[in-house]
Amino acid sequence: MSKQFQFKLVLLGESAVGKSSLVLRFVKDQFDDYRESTIGAAFLTQTVSLEDGTSVKFEIWDTAGQERYKAPMYYRNANCAVVVYDITQSASLEKARSWIRELQRQADPSIIIALCGNKSDLSARRQVSQEEAKKYAEEEGLMWGETSAKSGEGVQDIFTDIAKKLPKSAPPSARTAGGRTATGARQGVDLNKQANATGGQGEQCNC
Protein backbone atom coordinates (compact mmCIF):
# COMPACT_ATOMS: atom_id res chain seq x y z
CA MET A 1 0.00 0.00 0.00
CA SER A 2 1.34 3.40 -0.93
CA LYS A 3 1.85 5.91 1.86
CA GLN A 4 -0.47 8.90 2.01
CA PHE A 5 0.34 12.12 3.84
CA GLN A 6 -1.76 15.17 4.61
CA PHE A 7 -0.47 18.74 4.74
CA LYS A 8 -2.03 22.16 5.26
CA LEU A 9 -1.36 24.63 2.44
CA VAL A 10 -2.35 28.29 2.47
CA LEU A 11 -2.58 30.67 -0.50
CA LEU A 12 -1.72 34.30 0.12
CA GLY A 13 -1.48 37.39 -2.05
CA GLU A 14 -3.22 40.57 -3.08
CA SER A 15 -6.82 40.54 -4.32
CA ALA A 16 -7.32 39.76 -8.02
CA VAL A 17 -3.96 38.03 -8.56
CA GLY A 18 -5.85 34.82 -9.29
CA LYS A 19 -5.49 32.75 -6.10
CA SER A 20 -8.98 31.25 -6.29
CA SER A 21 -8.62 30.61 -10.02
CA LEU A 22 -5.31 28.87 -9.36
CA VAL A 23 -6.93 26.57 -6.80
CA LEU A 24 -9.94 25.91 -9.04
CA ARG A 25 -7.61 24.90 -11.87
CA PHE A 26 -5.55 22.66 -9.56
CA VAL A 27 -8.49 20.99 -7.80
CA LYS A 28 -11.13 20.79 -10.56
CA ASP A 29 -9.17 21.65 -13.72
CA GLN A 30 -11.63 24.47 -14.40
CA PHE A 31 -11.39 28.20 -15.06
CA ASP A 32 -14.06 30.87 -14.57
CA ASP A 33 -13.51 34.29 -16.15
CA TYR A 34 -16.02 35.91 -13.81
CA ARG A 35 -15.04 34.38 -10.48
CA GLU A 36 -15.92 36.65 -7.54
CA SER A 37 -13.42 37.65 -4.87
CA THR A 38 -13.06 35.31 -1.92
CA ILE A 39 -14.53 36.55 1.35
CA GLY A 40 -12.57 35.34 4.38
CA ALA A 41 -11.18 31.99 3.24
CA ALA A 42 -12.30 29.00 1.19
CA PHE A 43 -11.29 25.42 1.98
CA LEU A 44 -10.57 22.72 -0.62
CA THR A 45 -8.60 19.49 -0.82
CA GLN A 46 -6.59 17.83 -3.58
CA THR A 47 -4.24 14.86 -3.67
CA VAL A 48 -0.98 14.66 -5.62
CA SER A 49 0.56 11.28 -6.45
CA LEU A 50 4.35 11.21 -6.52
CA GLU A 51 6.69 9.00 -8.52
CA ASP A 52 8.00 7.28 -5.37
CA GLY A 53 4.56 5.80 -4.70
CA THR A 54 3.58 8.24 -1.95
CA SER A 55 0.65 10.60 -2.22
CA VAL A 56 0.18 13.99 -0.63
CA LYS A 57 -3.26 15.31 0.27
CA PHE A 58 -3.28 19.10 0.45
CA GLU A 59 -5.76 20.84 2.74
CA ILE A 60 -5.90 24.15 0.88
CA TRP A 61 -6.91 27.43 2.51
CA ASP A 62 -7.58 30.06 -0.15
CA THR A 63 -7.52 33.41 1.66
CA ALA A 64 -8.95 36.78 0.69
CA GLY A 65 -6.38 39.38 -0.24
CA GLN A 66 -7.93 42.26 1.66
CA GLU A 67 -5.89 43.54 4.59
CA ARG A 68 -8.72 43.05 7.08
CA TYR A 69 -8.48 39.31 6.51
CA LYS A 70 -4.73 39.28 7.00
CA ALA A 71 -4.76 37.15 10.14
CA PRO A 72 -2.42 34.41 11.37
CA MET A 73 -5.39 32.07 11.89
CA TYR A 74 -5.28 31.10 8.21
CA TYR A 75 -1.62 30.09 8.14
CA ARG A 76 -1.34 28.75 11.69
CA ASN A 77 0.11 25.22 11.57
CA ALA A 78 0.50 25.50 7.79
CA ASN A 79 3.16 23.21 6.31
CA CYS A 80 3.45 25.20 3.10
CA ALA A 81 2.32 28.43 1.51
CA VAL A 82 1.90 29.64 -2.07
CA VAL A 83 2.28 33.42 -2.24
CA VAL A 84 0.79 34.61 -5.52
CA TYR A 85 1.46 37.76 -7.53
CA ASP A 86 0.22 38.92 -10.93
CA ILE A 87 3.02 39.21 -13.50
CA THR A 88 1.17 42.15 -15.12
CA GLN A 89 1.07 44.17 -11.87
CA SER A 90 4.40 45.09 -10.28
CA ALA A 91 2.60 46.30 -7.13
CA SER A 92 1.33 42.77 -6.54
CA LEU A 93 4.92 41.53 -6.19
CA GLU A 94 5.54 44.13 -3.51
CA LYS A 95 2.44 42.89 -1.71
CA ALA A 96 3.71 39.33 -2.07
CA ARG A 97 6.98 40.38 -0.45
CA SER A 98 5.04 41.73 2.56
CA TRP A 99 3.16 38.43 2.90
CA ILE A 100 6.43 36.54 2.76
CA ARG A 101 7.95 38.75 5.45
CA GLU A 102 4.92 38.07 7.62
CA LEU A 103 5.23 34.32 7.09
CA GLN A 104 8.91 34.48 7.94
CA ARG A 105 8.08 36.29 11.19
CA GLN A 106 4.89 34.54 12.24
CA ALA A 107 4.65 31.09 10.64
CA ASP A 108 6.49 27.94 11.65
CA PRO A 109 10.20 28.20 10.73
CA SER A 110 9.97 24.94 8.76
CA ILE A 111 7.19 26.19 6.45
CA ILE A 112 7.88 25.75 2.72
CA ILE A 113 7.09 28.92 0.77
CA ALA A 114 6.59 29.07 -2.99
CA LEU A 115 6.44 32.41 -4.81
CA CYS A 116 4.07 32.07 -7.76
CA GLY A 117 3.74 34.49 -10.66
CA ASN A 118 0.25 33.97 -12.08
CA LYS A 119 -1.29 35.06 -15.42
CA SER A 120 1.66 33.95 -17.55
CA ASP A 121 -0.80 33.85 -20.48
CA LEU A 122 -0.70 37.68 -20.36
CA SER A 123 3.05 37.89 -20.97
CA ALA A 124 2.56 40.74 -23.49
CA ARG A 125 1.49 42.91 -20.52
CA ARG A 126 4.24 41.69 -18.21
CA GLN A 127 5.53 44.15 -15.59
CA VAL A 128 7.43 41.66 -13.41
CA SER A 129 10.33 39.94 -15.16
CA GLN A 130 11.16 36.33 -14.45
CA GLU A 131 14.68 37.39 -13.57
CA GLU A 132 13.53 39.83 -10.87
CA ALA A 133 11.15 37.37 -9.22
CA LYS A 134 13.54 34.45 -9.43
CA LYS A 135 16.40 36.49 -7.95
CA TYR A 136 14.21 37.54 -5.02
CA ALA A 137 13.07 33.94 -4.45
CA GLU A 138 16.67 32.71 -4.44
CA GLU A 139 17.72 35.40 -1.97
CA GLU A 140 14.90 34.42 0.41
CA GLY A 141 15.25 30.67 -0.05
CA LEU A 142 11.83 30.32 -1.69
CA MET A 143 10.55 28.03 -4.41
CA TRP A 144 9.46 29.95 -7.51
CA GLY A 145 7.43 29.36 -10.64
CA GLU A 146 5.00 30.98 -13.05
CA THR A 147 1.52 29.74 -13.77
CA SER A 148 -1.55 30.49 -15.81
CA ALA A 149 -4.78 29.56 -14.09
CA LYS A 150 -6.51 30.30 -17.39
CA SER A 151 -4.52 27.89 -19.57
CA GLY A 152 -3.41 25.57 -16.77
CA GLU A 153 0.26 26.03 -17.62
CA GLY A 154 2.56 25.37 -14.66
CA VAL A 155 -0.26 24.87 -12.14
CA GLN A 156 0.20 21.16 -11.51
CA ASP A 157 3.97 21.62 -11.53
CA ILE A 158 4.12 24.09 -8.66
CA PHE A 159 1.93 21.99 -6.36
CA THR A 160 3.76 18.79 -7.30
CA ASP A 161 7.13 20.44 -6.60
CA ILE A 162 5.88 21.49 -3.17
CA ALA A 163 4.61 17.96 -2.50
CA LYS A 164 8.04 16.56 -3.36
CA LYS A 165 9.78 18.95 -0.97
CA LEU A 166 7.53 18.35 2.04
CA PRO A 167 8.99 16.05 4.75
CA LYS A 168 7.30 12.65 4.69
CA SER A 169 8.75 11.55 8.02
CA ALA A 170 10.63 12.80 11.06
CA PRO A 171 13.32 11.09 13.15
CA PRO A 172 11.64 8.93 15.85
CA SER A 173 13.23 11.01 18.62
CA ALA A 174 11.73 14.20 17.18
CA ARG A 175 8.13 12.97 16.99
CA THR A 176 5.67 14.04 19.65
CA ALA A 177 1.93 13.77 20.08
CA GLY A 178 -0.23 15.62 17.57
CA GLY A 179 2.09 15.04 14.63
CA ARG A 180 4.59 17.71 15.67
CA THR A 181 8.31 17.50 16.17
CA ALA A 182 10.00 18.53 19.39
CA THR A 183 10.56 21.96 17.83
CA GLY A 184 6.84 22.41 17.23
CA ALA A 185 6.90 21.93 13.47
CA ARG A 186 3.90 20.07 12.15
CA GLN A 187 4.72 16.91 10.20
CA GLY A 188 2.67 15.29 7.50
CA VAL A 189 -0.18 13.12 8.77
CA ASP A 190 0.20 9.52 7.57
CA LEU A 191 -3.34 8.72 6.47
CA ASN A 192 -2.65 4.98 6.27
CA LYS A 193 -1.73 4.87 9.95
CA GLN A 194 -4.78 6.96 10.81
CA ALA A 195 -7.05 4.59 8.92
CA ASN A 196 -5.58 1.55 10.69
CA ALA A 197 -5.92 3.18 14.10
CA THR A 198 -9.55 4.16 13.50
CA GLY A 199 -10.74 0.98 11.85
CA GLY A 200 -10.50 2.38 8.35
CA GLN A 201 -11.96 5.81 9.03
CA GLY A 202 -9.65 8.76 8.51
CA GLU A 203 -9.29 11.34 11.30
CA GLN A 204 -9.94 15.03 10.85
CA CYS A 205 -6.67 16.94 10.78
CA ASN A 206 -6.35 19.43 13.63
CA CYS A 207 -5.57 22.46 11.48
Rank of each mutant, 00 (worst) to 15 (best):
residue 8 K to R: 02
residue 89 Q to D: 15
residue 57 K to P: 02
residue 167 P to E: 14
residue 20 S to Y: 07
residue 155 V to P: 06
residue 74 Y to T: 14
residue 174 A to C: 13
residue 204 Q to S: 11
residue 169 S to M: 04
residue 181 T to D: 12
residue 107 A to N: 04
residue 168 K to W: 07
residue 204 Q to P: 07
residue 110 S to A: 14
residue 92 S to R: 11
residue 165 K to N: 08
residue 115 L to T: 00
residue 43 F to E: 00
residue 197 A to F: 08
residue 63 T to W: 05
residue 146 E to N: 12
residue 36 E to I: 05
residue 179 G to N: 00
residue 27 V to K: 14
residue 190 D to P: 05
residue 201 Q to K: 15
residue 31 F to Q: 08
residue 160 T to L: 02
residue 56 V to R: 08
residue 14 E to V: 03
residue 134 K to S: 05
residue 54 T to G: 05
residue 125 R to N: 11
residue 131 E to M: 09
residue 202 G to C: 07
residue 169 S to R: 07
residue 206 N to W: 12
residue 38 T to L: 01
residue 82 V to W: 11
residue 144 W to E: 14
residue 27 V to Y: 13
residue 52 D to C: 02
residue 55 S to K: 09
residue 179 G to D: 02
residue 42 A to T: 03
residue 133 A to H: 08
residue 28 K to L: 11
residue 144 W to S: 09
residue 47 T to H: 00
residue 165 K to M: 12
residue 77 N to D: 15
residue 167 P to V: 12
residue 116 C to I: 04
residue 178 G to I: 04
residue 11 L to N: 01
residue 97 R to K: 15
residue 154 G to Y: 07
residue 48 V to M: 03
residue 128 V to Y: 04
residue 184 G to P: 07
residue 12 L to T: 00
residue 172 P to K: 06
residue 190 D to M: 00
residue 134 K to D: 12
residue 120 S to Q: 11
residue 195 A to L: 12
residue 88 T to Q: 02
residue 126 R to S: 10
residue 117 G to R: 15
residue 97 R to E: 12
residue 75 Y to N: 05
residue 121 D to P: 09
residue 73 M to N: 02
residue 99 W to V: 00
residue 138 E to I: 00
residue 38 T to C: 13
residue 118 N to C: 10
residue 22 L to C: 01
residue 171 P to V: 09
residue 200 G to H: 14
residue 117 G to Y: 14
residue 4 Q to T: 03
residue 189 V to R: 15
residue 94 E to D: 10
residue 133 A to S: 08
residue 29 D to L: 07
residue 162 I to M: 01
residue 145 G to C: 13
residue 183 T to I: 10
residue 158 I to W: 10
residue 153 E to N: 13
residue 16 A to R: 12
residue 129 S to E: 13
residue 87 I to L: 06
residue 36 E to P: 06
residue 185 A to T: 03
residue 86 D to L: 04
residue 82 V to M: 09
residue 92 S to P: 04
residue 105 R to S: 05
residue 179 G to P: 07
residue 151 S to T: 15
residue 173 S to E: 15
residue 51 E to Y: 00
residue 176 T to H: 06
residue 186 R to M: 03
residue 29 D to C: 13
residue 179 G to A: 01
residue 132 E to S: 10
residue 35 R to V: 06
residue 27 V to W: 09
residue 28 K to Y: 10
residue 165 K to D: 09
residue 81 A to F: 07
residue 197 A to T: 10
residue 57 K to C: 08
residue 92 S to T: 02
residue 140 E to S: 14
residue 43 F to H: 11
residue 99 W to Q: 00
residue 85 Y to T: 06
residue 51 E to Q: 11
residue 31 F to R: 03
residue 170 A to N: 11
residue 113 I to E: 02
residue 168 K to F: 04
residue 40 G to P: 01
residue 113 I to Q: 01
residue 181 T to V: 00
residue 147 T to Q: 07
residue 184 G to R: 09
residue 69 Y to K: 02
residue 26 F to D: 11
residue 19 K to P: 03
residue 79 N to I: 10
residue 26 F to L: 09
residue 105 R to I: 04
residue 98 S to D: 10
residue 167 P to S: 10
residue 124 A to C: 11
residue 125 R to M: 09
residue 142 L to P: 03
residue 194 Q to W: 15
residue 175 R to L: 15
residue 48 V to P: 04
residue 142 L to N: 00
